[in-house]
Amino acid sequence: MAQVPDVKESFSTQVHTLTIGAAADEGGTRSHKLTVGGAKVTPFAHFDGDAGAKPVCALEVQNRDPVDWPDAVREPWKDVLTDPVAWAKKCVDEHGAELLCLKLAGCDPDNEDLGPGDAAATVKSVLEAVKVPLIVLGCGNHEKDNAVFEKVSEAGKGERLLLGFAEAENYKKLVALCQADGHALIALAPLDIALGKQLAQEISNLEFPMDRVASFQTTGALGYGMEYTYSIQERQRLAALGGDKMMMTAVLATIGHEAWRAKEARLPESEAPELGPEAVRGPMWEAMTGVSLLMAGTDILICRHPDAFKAMRSFIDKMQG
């Protein structure tokens, strides 16, 4: 019989590992830490080599009632939407979340304009109520986020939070805070790999280690530019495996946030009977966005609907048990 040629693809470099959360042995109070990244091959190509750590899913919690969320995604959380601590506990106790993402949307001056002290108190309460590693996202207003993160970073000192976002026009403050308090950060460059690489370079110039950075290109939802996110992540992974040190960071995607902006997810069945029940359709839209991006190299997914979260975890286990 003819010899079957070895067609394994091998690469000389790998994606950096990124660790979120610190347990008692490292001075934190988390029950465990989570490590992602480390792949030496393209996503899930474990037949080629070391596929690295499994991607992880976080459930999203906000410090305000997210009145802009459609009913289909409010429904599973309806009893806890006004209480971030109860919401966090529900994520962990009922849905088995190993990672949470607390989005401080309530600090937005256009929303409730909650102050830095309020935000830090919420972070502290959540850290006390649940013991899983925590991602904390700002509200998106740079000035406000800088003030909020000063307090939040201090409140979570030693817990190795993952904080976001560092952006081209506003990254120095967050880098300094993460350096001082031992956190990791998310570098955000919207759908532009050249800007993403430049931001990584500038963060690296501040001597912040690349294995404490997750990159975030913003996420196009299925039907709304997902292919742009996909091709950026694909290029990033190939560049990382080809030795580009600024492209070796782990990758994050906010699938819940994006998918639930799509009208195909949002529209109630009463307005679009041909699309079927939104309680099924919406989570599926979120999950399909997530599955696609996992194939492109996403390491951390932030989910909203528990059904999408469950589907993502089951898919990841099947792909990389």
């Binding site: 050249a194 580009d244 040190k245």
Partner: peptide, 14 residues
């Protein structure tokens, strides 16, 4: 052979 960024000369030297 590499991804462009404004500091590509620095990035290539990392």
């Amino acid at each position: 052979k590499m991804i462009y960024n404004d500091s590509y000369l620095d990035s290539a030297r990392q």
